[in-house]
């Protein structure tokens, strides 16, 4: 074989192998989607069914049994609110750390990250007691606050690592030209940091939407997010996989599709500026 033929063969092999790995890893998710459109009997058929007449009955039953819209609404409100709140807190802090770097900036950043390393369960009893005392148990407010705080260290870090690549001279120049702080923010800083704000916000949206620990422990019927709705399907051992799949499908579809579209942005932010 010539070198060219070897290269071609390698390329074909790589393509096949890549597709095989991707399909293999995606399989459980694909299976979930398929099962959502089966009847309960088809869902546990032996051998497993690949070809069947799809049905929508599971989705209707899930909506009737547990108010999907309420949980979806809670998830949407708490994730969006906590993302906005988090950005409002993190932006000024990251700005200050990146452009007015002091002796202790690095220490403060590390300390922030270390609060994230403390397992949430360490704070469970105190937070539960506080929430109970002030009457915030099972409210969206409590979840929003908790989501914001648990994402905040990551948000500051992501914004900081993006900001520090922006040359401070640009900001100084605008100040020299007599821009006020607001103008500096609005005309110079915001356009320059839009990308990192977006990627940080997107990531926090995903984290909050999927957060299960606080959602399970601080909320119940009123303020539960989709993570709690799904967990409620875990206790009985009965075989109702089709309905479980339908509920799961409804819970993850919005955020997975959202993730597909914002994948590039997300990755850029996630690498903490360490990977170009």
């Amino acid at each position: 074989m010539t070198q060219l033929q070897i290269n071609l063969a390698m390329k074909v092999l790589r393509t096949i192998l890549s597709w095989a790995v991707a399909l293999f890893l995606f399989f459980p998710l694909g299976w979930l989607v398929l099962t959502a459109f089966k009847t309960e009997l088809q869902a546990i058929a032996v051998p497993p069914l690949l070809i069947f007449t799809p049905t929508l009955e599971n989705f209707t039953i899930v909506q009737e049994r547990s108010d999907y819209m309420l949980y979806a609404q809670n998830a949407l409100i708490t994730s969006i609110a906590s993302t906005i709140l988090g950005l409002m807190l993190a932006f000024p802090a990251a700005y200050s750390m990146a452009f007015f770097k002091g002796k202790h900036t690095k220490d403060i950043l590390m300390w922030m990250l270390s609060t994230k390393m403390m397992p949430a369960v360490g704070a469970l009893v105190p937070i539960y007691v506080i929430a109970q005392t002030v009457g915030l148990l099972d409210t969206r407010t409590a979840l929003t606050i908790v989501f914001t705080l648990s994402n905040l260290p990551i948000m500051v870090w992501m914004l900081y690592s993006n900001f520090k690549d922006i040359p401070g001279e640009i900001l100084e120049a605008s100040r020299m030209d007599g821009a006020t702080l607001w103008q500096e923010f609005r005309m110079v800083l915001l356009p320059l940091t839009m990308g990192s704000l977006a990627s940080t916000g997107l990531l926090c949206l995903v984290f909050s939407w999927n957060e299960a620990f606080w959602a399970l422990n601080l909320s119940a019927a009123k303020s539960g997010t989709l993570a709690t709705l799904i967990a409620s399907y875990s206790s009985p051992e009965g075989l109702f996989w089709a309905k479980l799949s339908a509920a799961s499908f409804m819970a993850i579809a919005p955020i997975v599709v959202f993730g597909w579209f914002s994948q590039k942005q997300l990755v850029q932010g996630l690498t903490f500026g360490a990977v170009k």
């Binding site: 890893l25 998710l29 999927n210 993570a227 799904i230 875990s234 479980l244 993850i252 955020i255 997975v256």
Partner: peptide, 18 residues
């Protein structure tokens, strides 16, 4: 790429039950 990244967006509870 899209197939590979998908499981990351799935919430832990769904992932676990699945």
């Amino acid at each position: 790429r899209i197939l590979l990244i998908s499981p990351f967006f799935v919430m832990p509870t769904v992932n676990a039950l699945l």
